[in-house]
């Protein structure tokens, strides 16, 4: 078999698998719908506001509810030190700049 045939077949198989990915994602989304609806009902019933992705710090457990000072608990000049705090930043509302002072 020619080398080009082997290569083209390899690319075709990969492209077919790429197509499978899109179909798999769509099919799985439909399969996940009952779970998502169930979890959504629970969110409504318990009036929850955040996903439980990381539980190490308050502001990364409930990013939408954290108060202005939470990421700087240790002392006023402390840099954020939780590992997940390095990737979960404080919410938009907390990052509004203060009024200009000069």
């Amino acid at each position: 078999m020619r080398k080009s045939d082997i290569f083209l077949r390899f690319i075709l198989v990969n492209l077919a698998l790429m197509g499978v990915i899109f179909f798999h994602a769509r099919a799985k989304t439909e399969a996940h719908l009952p779970r998502l609806q169930q979890v959504g009902r629970m969110v409504e019933q318990l009036q929850l506001t955040d996903l439980c992705l990381t539980t190490e710090a308050w502001h990364t457990r409930n990013p939408s509810q954290a108060d202005w000072h939470t990421p700087f608990q240790t002392h006023p000049l402390a840099l954020e030190h939780f590992p997940s705090g390095a990737i979960v930043r404080p919410p938009e509302s907390m990052r509004k700049p203060h009024a200009p002072v000069d």
């Binding site: 439980c52 992705l53 990381t54 539980t55 190490e56 710090a57 990364t60 939780f82 590992p83 997940s84 705090g85 390095a86 990737i87």
Partner: peptide, 11 residues
């Protein structure tokens, strides 16, 4: 490991 950080309880 990045998401988990120091979390003891991880979903």
């Amino acid at each position: 490991p990045v998401l988990k950080g120091w979390s003891v309880l991880y979903p």
